[in-house]
Simulated assay, not measured.
Amino acid sequence: METRKSGPIGRPRGFDADEALERAMLVFWEHGYEGASLATLTNAMGISTTSMYAAFGNKEELFRKALERYTEGPSAYLPRALEEPTAHGVAAAILTGAIRTTTRPAQPNGCLGVQGALTASDSGREVRDLLITWRDNSYSCVRERFQRAVDDGELPPETDPGLLARYVTTLAFGIAVQAASGVPRDELQGMADAALRNWPLP
């Protein structure tokens, strides 16, 4: 329960905004954008609807902040993976990171950025478009990294970095969908290992 203190009506007081945002992220992660009602969100966050609006804006703005938190937290394996010294290492780290993040027992299964708004009504269209952009950005970062690998001679010159990046990111997003369906971690890892056996060599 939030503690009310003196101040302008609706001004968020007496709660940890960082913790509240973490809880909102978990609700969106588990239920998706449209499946997360305001009542479910505010109950999980431990604040009133008035305080939620004052601290985070409307539901869409709250989702945007939750997605930023997800990107910097559970999904932070991607920028770390891009720093691997080889393209194969990048791909392996992306897939392993996806498996680890989407199957962690203490968190919802799946990926907030994949399942947050795969289907959405007109009212959720902006969130759906936001997540399309989020996924496209991941793809673009991987493509640029693989282009460097081609330029450096690590990947064969005939390699299409865009196609290879699409292959790896599609696998990662597919892992998230399978994880949300209850496919166990060891089976997902076996699939990832199999997918990388025919990696292009210079």
Rank of each mutant, 00 (worst) to 15 (best):
E2R: 10
T3W: 09
S6E: 13
P8M: 04
G10W: 07
P12C: 07
G14R: 00
F15L: 14
A17E: 11
A17T: 10
A20C: 00
A24H: 07
L26W: 10
F28D: 12
F28V: 00
W29N: 01
H31Q: 14
G32I: 05
G32A: 03
G32F: 13
E34L: 05
E34W: 03
G35D: 04
A36F: 14
T42R: 02
N43A: 14
N43Q: 15
A44S: 12
A44Y: 00
G46C: 00
G46T: 02
G46Q: 05
G46P: 03
I47L: 08
T50P: 02
T50E: 12
M52Y: 04
A55W: 00
F56N: 04
F56E: 05
K59R: 15
E60Q: 13
E60P: 02
R64W: 01
R64N: 04
K65M: 11
K65V: 06
L67W: 05
E68P: 05
R69A: 14
T71E: 15
T71V: 09
P74H: 10
P74R: 10
Y77G: 13
L78W: 00
L78Y: 00
L82C: 06
E83Y: 01
E84C: 12
H88D: 00
A92Q: 10
A92F: 05
A93D: 07
T96A: 15
T96V: 07
T101N: 10
T102F: 09
T102A: 15
T102I: 02
T103D: 06
T103H: 05
R104C: 13
P105R: 01
A106V: 10
Q107W: 15
Q107G: 00
P108W: 07
N109W: 13
G110F: 12
G110S: 10
G110A: 06
L112Q: 01
G113K: 11
L118P: 06
T119W: 15
A120L: 13
S121K: 12
R125T: 04
R125C: 11
R128E: 06
D129L: 14
L130C: 10
L131K: 00
I132R: 12
T133D: 05
W134V: 09
N137Y: 14
Y139Q: 12
R143C: 14
R145E: 01
R145F: 02
F146N: 02
A149W: 01
A149V: 03
V150M: 03
D152M: 10
E154Y: 02
L155M: 04
T159K: 01
D160G: 01
D160K: 13
L164V: 01
L164Q: 01
Y167I: 05
V168Y: 08
T170Q: 08
T170L: 11
T170S: 15
L171Y: 14
L171W: 12
L171T: 13
A180Q: 07
A180V: 04
V183Y: 11
V183H: 03
P184N: 05
P184Q: 07
E187R: 08
L188H: 09
L188S: 05
M191I: 09
A192G: 09
L196V: 06
L196K: 08
R197G: 00
N198I: 06
N198Q: 08
L201I: 14
L201P: 00
